[in-house]
Design a protein around this nucleic acid. Structure first.
Lengths: 145, 145
DNA sequence: GCATAAAATGGAATTGTTCCAGTTAACGAG
DNA sequence: CTCGTTAACTGGAACAATTCCATTTTATGC
């Protein structure tokens, strides 16, 4: 088996390369914004078996070295985003939970403005837009309307 | 005991007024951005005893009628904010979890811009600024640096 | 190949929150 | 102001997502 993209990226990030790690990174890339359960299921499909713990460990490790990004919308388990290195934001459907990327529409990181508000030193602005995805608009809100 | 502010607000919101509800609303107002545990402890201090469930129920009810607002920063239990009706955002300390309100610094709801992005209909923009509070800046990051 | 430290395993434990069935209490009608 | 209806509260069990722990396995440097 030749060196996959995931494998190279892991090696470059100076972390040990294991089949579990390669599989998890590939899974996140195949399913952008998926939750841990989805990743675990996908990885099990690839490798036959992996411990739940291993997947959580890998997701943390990948997040730490910046190969993936953890996003945690209110009321949802954590999601994992393979797109990193830019400061894009997210749009989440209130009904089905679907999540898509959005570039900061008003320019470069407009929301970083209040850098020194109340004596805080701010280094990240996390923006989540809530609404309804195309499929769910017709159906109307199920709850939390 | 005369009708308290909390009591009046509840009545106006057309929900039943119970001592638990009054106590919870007062507790949230006394401790802005507190989590459920803190509210439960405070309410128990006031009333002697309340079921955990009752407090959760009330918090949900108050959120639903718009008397409080639920905020859920990543990695933290839900917090409850008594300030409602405006679209202010939050600043959260990575070290101690302290949360403060911030008005949207770049004008009126600048982050609502991508209203129709990708076919979604957006009706809320949630912004969380991450950084270090004045007290924690000197101490440096404990983790997640 | 061998040593060693990092990663994976499996199982139990936590945390925050919700579900459920039964009891209590608020409040509108009489 | 008593009664009935229905919402709210109680207590206890259940749950989902995640983490902790001790042990075993495995990737990588020498």
């Amino acid at each position: 088996m030749t060196s996959s993209a995931a494998e190279r990226d892991l090696r470059r990030a100076a972390v040990r390369v294991t089949k579990q790690r390669v599989a998890v990174l590939d899974a996140v890339r195949r399913h952008p914004h998926a939750d841990a359960d989805t990743i675990i299921a996908d990885v099990r499909g690839e490798l036959g078996s992996v411990s739940t713990q291993a997947v959580y460990d890998v997701l943390h490790a990948l997040d730490e070295v910046g190969l993936i990004r953890r996003v945690e919308p209110a009321g949802s388990p954590a999601r994992y985003d393979p797109r990193v290195g830019d400061n894009h934001h997210h749009l989440v459907c209130r009904r089905c939970g679907r999540m898509v990327d959005v570039d900061c529409a008003t320019g470069a990181a407009p929301c970083m403005e209040p850098v020194a508000a109340q004596g805080f030193s701010v280094n990240e602005a996390e923006v989540i837009f809530w609404g309804y995805c195309p499929d769910c608009q017709s159906l109307g809100p199920t709850h939390a309307g």
